[in-house]
């Protein structure tokens, strides 16, 4: 049994909130450069120039990449041989979000109630997903999620008879409807199977995958590639003003499901696809 002080977790979360909002991960930085070279639309190329310049300014002038610094989505893989002391783990995480968003000059975008809509002024609570795993480590992924793209995300409860063609149609429908609203070029997370909430979780989790990674399941990997090609053929383009780059990547995650169902979730992320992972 390993003991971890809650304050250590708070401190890490705080740093991760700041890092994620000022610096994109290496894989995202690389894909920007490649996509800019491959973009066929002259206006699209110009928009890529602005987006690349934006990333540079965020990094050197310490200005958040996007003013929507998101709702803090946090995935925790908690080793079952870890004992957290000093505070409740959830409280420690929320304290980290509070600290990071305040000290990092990040926007507070969370309201305490969906109807009365009073701002909590510290960006808490975070959305926390716990997974209990073997071992004595804690792996935390912090992924701030902006709502321009979140609002364009969808769940489709398809029928088994709809099959893989139904899945493709669902994803293309969601992306087409999202269009310029979701700040393309996008990253598209797809969850297939499970239950209503499980597929949505899988789609969200998919967005944290590394650009360039492929599903280990052959048909899923092919599906990812086919969907990416079809999405880019939609011609939505950078900022939705036309072009050959509508998505940087499509990540599909699957899970066993019920004999009667084929749930599909499409979680769309803008080009500011932010995530940081640390192991404590």
């Amino acid at each position: 049994m390993r003991t971890v002080e809650a304050s250590v977790i708070t401190e890490e979360i705080s740093k991760m909130c700041i890092e994620a909002n000022y610096h994109l991960s290496k894989d995202m930085m690389q894909v920007f450069g490649q996509a800019k070279d491959n973009e066929t639309s002259p206006l699209g190329k110009k928009i890529f120039d602005q987006l690349c310049e934006n990333l540079k300014i965020a990094d050197t002038d310490t200005i958040p990449i996007c003013q929507d610094t998101g709702m803090a989505v946090i995935f925790v893989k908690l080793g079952q041989d870890v004992h957290v002391t000093g505070a409740n783990l959830t409280d420690a995480i929320n304290e980290g979000v509070r600290k990071g968003y305040t000290e990092g000059f990040l926007r507070k975008s969370v309201v305490r109630d969906p109807i009365d809509r009073v701002n909590t002024k510290d960006n808490t609570p975070a959305i926390i997903h716990y997974d209990i795993v073997p071992g004595e480590q804690i792996e935390i992924t912090m992924a701030p999620k902006g709502f321009g793209s979140e609002n364009m995300s969808r769940v489709f409860m398809l029928k088994p008879a709809d099959g893989i063609e139904g899945v493709k149609n669902a994803v293309l429908t969601a992306v087409r409807d999202a269009g310029p609203n979701a700040c393309p070029p996008m990253v598209v997370g797809v969850g297939i199977g499970g239950t209503f909430e499980k597929c949505a979780f899988l789609a969200k989790k998919a967005l944290t995958r590394e650009i360039g990674s492929h599903s280990p399941i052959p048909y899923v990997s092919e599906l990812e590639q086919e969907l990416l090609t079809k999405i880019n053929a939609l011609g939505i383009g950078p900022a939705g003003l036309g072009g050959s780059t509508t998505a940087f990547a499509v990540f599909v995650e699957t899970f066993p499901t019920h004999i009667a169902g084929l749930p599909v979730a499409v979680n769309i992320c803008c080009h500011v696809n932010r995530h940081v992972t640390r192991v404590i």
């Binding site: 602005q50 965020a58 958040p64 803008c270």
Partner: peptide, 13 residues
Amino acid sequence: LAAIGGAGALLSK
């Protein structure tokens, strides 16, 4: 008019 979504650092300048 559309400003470029997600270019908040650039536009702040």
